[in-house]
């Protein structure tokens, strides 16, 4: 069936099978391969993107369910050539190693900071608890999010309509 999903501000129209998962729509149809697929039971969160401003596991959403809605992926974090503070924080604090969980982790981190600009360590850990990292032991991810909280972008995030 024909769907139009607005991804990182760009409307994308494709003819897809109803069973196509959003993660595969993003990766295979749109070549947005920053979103990863790490499990088959909705546990790992490597596929987290925003669906209308809410982080979702895109392996557990059908592409057709995103039709007419807004999706934001890791490729949409950077604005006008400026890294999001979360992206900067992950680099500053060594919050990534193999990089496979990183896109999902950063999408949730951005969402958290938009709602809780000064989160405690416990809040950060809870926010990220739906996502698995095999490399970092989480310590530096927590520090990365704190770094981003302490270095907000100069201009406030534009509100997605």
């Amino acid at each position: 069936m024909n769907i139009t999903v607005t991804v990182n501000g760009q409307p994308c129209t494709r003819d897809v099978e109803p069973r196509l998962l959003l993660v595969h729509f993003l990766r295979d149809e749109l070549d947005l391969t920053g979103t990863h697929w790490g499990c088959d039971t909705s546990n790992c969160g490597a596929c987290v993107v925003w669906l209308d401003d809410v982080p979702v596991k895109s392996c557990t959403v059908l592409a057709v369910m995103a039709s007419g809605r807004e999706v934001r992926t890791v490729e949409g974090l950077e604005r006008d050539g400026e890294l999001d503070p979360v992206q900067q924080g992950f680099t500053e604090c060594h919050g990534l190693q193999c990089g496979f969980c990183t896109p999902g982790m950063m999408m949730t981190s951005r969402w958290l900071l938009d709602r809780s600009p000064d989160p405690t360590e416990a809040e950060i850990r809870e926010a990220l608890s739906g996502q698995i990292c095999r490399c970092t032991g989480y310590e530096n991810i927590v520090r990365s999010v704190r770094w981003a909280a302490e270095h907000p972008a100069e201009k406030p995030e534009e509100v997605t309509p």
Binding site: L32, V74, E75, F90, T102
Partner: peptide, 12 residues
């Protein structure tokens, strides 16, 4: 290597 990974531009 972070520059590509934080942008979703790794090549797996």
């Amino acid at each position: 290597e972070d520059a590509r990974f934080i942008r979703g531009k790794g090549n797996y």
